[in-house]
Structure formats: structure tokens, C-alpha cells
């Protein structure tokens, strides 16, 4: 009797072990798939673009002739765009998060706003482009200048910044603010002196990550209408501009006419990847540095 049971048990045990190891390999494959695709992509981009990457390419003006084309205009365009996007999203995003987390009464309305912000985070970027075209480019008559593009991009990443800031504010330990109230501080004093400094690393991490999304976004700018050939460098937020991903898009589009454009696009992708990597590294450093303090 006992022997029969033991045999039964060992058979089930084997089966379970088999399932376990099969599952392990399936998940390993799933992980590898992403890695393989990524490495193929990086290999292709580097093999096509690295030879074209030099000082003249980075500092040069845009041109229809591949051998003298440069992307300084697009780099400056990206810079000015960020100079609009960063302050606008930080102010509006953190402001909204503070209101929703610390001032708004928990109730129907707050829930409604919260749901809509989460929904907005999932709206495709081209829809924001159409919004930007209608409101900033046409109704406010900005046209296709940095300010119009920057405000559109701000709307695009605002939901992400709000949600990240809310998370960061919520993660501030309650006893800290209670102690502050206990000392007789007002709400604003508590927010300014206690909650925001503690939440700041989380807020900054979210903001920088969403900025790197804005840097790589193309669709909203296609809708606003960025010229394919724009040679003068943008000198400020009221100038017309182009950005790195737009240049990649246009060069890829014309690579069947001029084969070297594919190399220029690849070289631009490398520059864009390096910029994104720098931003994301900054985000991680900020997070690690401040996490140790609290």
C-alpha cells in the first residue's frame, strides 16, 4: 500500500519538475527575444552610422549633400524644445500632484480627475499633435515654432509627470508631516519644507524619464509641420526648428533616393541614443543619491 503511494508520488514529482524546467526555458527565451532584437538593432545602427559620426557631422549645418550634412540645427532644436518642456511640465505637473494629493478632498471629483489623468497617459502621441496643431499652431497663431512644439510636448508628458509626482508624494512617510504639523507648521510650510524635499528625488526621476520620452517623440511634430529642409540654427524659443527624431524620419524617407541618407539617419540615431542614455543616467544618479538620505 505504501509502496504504491510512493511510486505515484514520485511520478507526480517528476512531472512537476519537468513542467518547472520547461517553464524556466520558456521565460528565458522570452527574455532573450528582447535582448536579441535590441542587439541586432544596435549592431545595425552602429555598423551603418558609426563611420559617419565625426566632429563635422555633429557641429555642421543641415544639407541635401550627405558628405557635408550636419545635425547641429537639430541638436539645438532639441535643446530649445527641452527648455520649454522642462519648466512647463515641472510646474504644472508637480502643482497638479500637490493639489490632488494634499489639498483636494478625496471624493467623486478627485476620483474623476485621477481616472482621466491616467487615461490621458495612454492617449497616442499623434492625438496630442493634432491638439497642438489646433490650439497652439493655429488658434494661438504660433505656427511651427519651438514654443508651439514645446507646449504640445508638455501636454504629452504631463500625465506621466503628474502620476510619478503623486507616487513620490504618497511615499513620503506620514510621521514626517505629522511631526511638522505637531510643531505648529502650516500646510504650505509642511509641503515646502518637509514633503517636497523628501519627494524630490522621485519627482525628478519621473520628470527626467518623461523628458527623454519627449526628446524621442516624432508624431506630434510631424502633425505641427516641421520643414524637411531648415538650415539656419534656431536661436530661441520663437524660431522655427527641427529636432533629432524628425531628421531621422526625413532621412529614412529619402534613403531610396540618396542611399547615404540611411547612414546619416543611423548616425543621428546614435547621437539621440547617447543623449537619452545621459538623461536616464542622470535620473538614476539622482535617485540613488537621495534615496540613502531618507
Amino acid at each position: 500500500m505504501e509502496k504504491v503511494l510512493e511510486r505515484k508520488m514520485s511520478r507526480r514529482m517528476n512531472m512537476r519538475l519537468l513542467v518547472n524546467s520547461v517553464a524556466k526555458y520558456i521565460f528565458l527565451l522570452a527574455t532573450l527575444f528582447g535582448l536579441v532584437v535590441l542587439s541586432v538593432l544596435i549592431y545595425r545602427v552602429f555598423s551603418e552610422g558609426f563611420g559617419w559620426l565625426n566632429f563635422d557631422f555633429i557641429t555642421g549645418k543641415l544639407s541635401t549633400q550627405p558628405e557635408r550634412a550636419g545635425i547641429m540645427g537639430a541638436i539645438l532644436g532639441t535643446f530649445w524644445l527641452m527648455l520649454v518642456v522642462a519648466p512647463v511640465t515641472m510646474f504644472l505637473g508637480v502643482g497638479t500632484a500637490i493639489y490632488l494629493e494634499l489639498y483636494a478632498k478625496k471624493g467623486r471629483l478627485q476620483g474623476f480627475i485621477q481616472t482621466n489623468i491616467s487615461n490621458l497617459a495612454g492617449v497616442p502621441s499623434i492625438v496630442y499633435g493634432i491638439l497642438g496643431l489646433t490650439v497652439f499652431a493655429r488658434a494661438m497663431n504660433f505656427g511651427n515654432i519651438v514654443l508651439a512644439g514645446g507646449l504640445t510636448m508638455s501636454l504629452l508628458i504631463l500625465p506621466i509627470v503628474i502620476v510619478a509626482s503623486q507616487e513620490a508624494i504618497r511615499a513620503v512617510p506620514n510621521p514626517l508631516s505629522e511631526a511638522s504639523y505637531g510643531m505648529g507648521a502650516t500646510k504650505w510650510q509642511t509641503i515646502k519644507e518637509i514633503i517636497l524635499p523628501v519627494a524630490l528625488p522621485g519627482i525628478l526621476t519621473g520628470a527626467i524619464l518623461s523628458l527623454s520620452r519627449a526628446i524621442g517623440e516624432t508624431a506630434p511634430l510631424v502633425v505641427i509641420g516641421i520643414p524637411a529642409l531648415l538650415i539656419p540654427f534656431p536661436g530661441g524659443i520663437l524660431d522655427k526648428f527641427t529636432v533629432l527624431p524628425m531628421q531621422i524620419y526625413y532621412w529614412t524617407l529619402d534613403s531610396s533616393l540618396t542611399a547615404e541618407y540611411a547612414n546619416l539617419a543611423a548616425a543621428t540615431i546614435i547621437v539621440l541614443l547617447v543623449a537619452l542614455l545621459l538623461l536616464n543616467t542622470t535620473a538614476i544618479i539622482i535617485r540613488n543619491k537621495f534615496q540613502q538620505k531618507h
Binding site: W80, L83, V84, A86, P87, M90, F91, G143, I145, G235, G236, I237, L238, D239, K240
Partner: peptide
Amino acid sequence: FLAIAALAAVIAACGAEPKANND
């Protein structure tokens, strides 16, 4: 830091005005 960034943006905007007029 944010204030400086904002200031830079404003200065840039002013600097850009002559060009904006061209537009």
C-alpha cells in the same frame, strides 16, 4: 535651478525677437 532655467528661456526668447519679426 528651475528659476535659472526659466530665466534662460526668457532671455533666449528676447534674443530671438528680431528673428521672430522676420517670421
